[in-house]
Amino acid sequence: METWVAAVILAALGLGVAQVVAAARMRARILALAARLHDTPATRDVEDRLPPVVADFARRAGAAPGAGLRVATFAQDGELRLKQGGRFAPTVAWQVVALGRAGFLWDARQSYGPVQTLRVIDALVGAEGVLEARLFGSLPVARLSGRDLTLGEAFRYLAELPWAPDAILGNPDLVWRVTGPDRVEVRLATQGGTARVTFTFDEAGDIVAMEAKDRPARDGKGGMVRLDWRARFGGYRRIGPRRLPEYGEVGYVWPGTGYEPYFRGRIRDYRVAH
């Protein structure tokens, strides 16, 4: 009996050590991805390529062309559900957004009391998409890559440009086109295809909605599908050095059931850096 108990204790200790090591490796990977974003090119002055409504939006936010900035960082407090019709769970996240070239890192965590139950990395770094999820910060439950994922992450980078006004004025890879009285499309070429989203502006010139067609997504069986995608923004105010929408919500349009959000949250602690 004593031998059996000792074996159980040793196995538990070994599992604990393995989880600690795996969690440390994931933290190191997150920091390495963030460092790569900090090394991306600085913003350039591309204001003359922009429709006036887009340039005015970015300038009103406090962005300036040719400022030589590399990244914006901010925190998020929100709710995330991992599948269609699932339950929302409180989620906190830290995000880094490249400003002179398309790229971002989203490090999200869900916890139950003091125990971290899920950690998710969603990123576009070096023109490649990354998606990883781990239970308790160590046990892998998903790791995706490839052309479809890269294209999907490019859609996300574009959709979140209201939170990166310096990229609007300073990323030369973005191509803008007016499509209606209050609508502007922006597109980005990737190795997986071209991502396109369309923003809707209100009468004050603020971006209040985003929509896109055929964004790659996972269905309930783990297969890849193309779905229409929507977001809305609100609560514009000054957060750190920029005037931004504090609130954001995003979701897919599912066949038969319509629009369903999967993330909604608010940003804080906004910063920009050279």
Rank of each mutant, 00 (worst) to 15 (best):
M1S: 14
T3W: 12
W4M: 11
V8G: 15
I9Y: 08
L10V: 14
L15H: 02
G16V: 06
Q19E: 11
V20E: 09
V21L: 15
A24C: 11
M26T: 06
R27M: 10
I30K: 15
R36S: 13
A42W: 10
T43V: 10
V46I: 05
E47F: 02
R49F: 12
D56W: 11
A58P: 03
G68T: 06
A75K: 05
E79L: 15
L80I: 15
L82N: 08
K83Q: 15
G86T: 10
G86F: 06
R87F: 09
V92A: 15
A98I: 09
A98M: 10
G100C: 10
A102Q: 08
F104D: 10
F104T: 06
W106G: 13
D107T: 07
T117V: 07
E128R: 15
R134V: 02
R134I: 01
R134Y: 01
L135Y: 12
S138V: 00
V141Y: 03
A142L: 09
A142W: 01
R143E: 01
S145L: 08
D148A: 02
D148I: 00
L149S: 07
L151V: 07
G152T: 05
A154M: 03
F155A: 10
R156D: 06
P162R: 07
A164Q: 00
P165Q: 03
G170N: 01
N171F: 15
D173V: 02
L174C: 10
L174M: 13
R177V: 14
V178R: 12
V178N: 00
T179V: 15
D182K: 03
D182C: 03
R183E: 13
A189Y: 04
T190C: 02
A195K: 03
T200E: 09
I207G: 01
V208C: 10
V208Y: 06
A209D: 07
A209H: 13
A212L: 06
A217H: 05
R218A: 13
R218G: 08
D219M: 04
R232F: 08
F233K: 02
F233W: 07
G234P: 00
Y236R: 01
I239E: 06
I239M: 01
I239D: 01
R242V: 03
R243C: 07
L244V: 00
P245Y: 07
G248H: 03
E249G: 01
V253I: 10
T257V: 12
P261H: 04
R266G: 09
I267G: 04
A273Q: 13
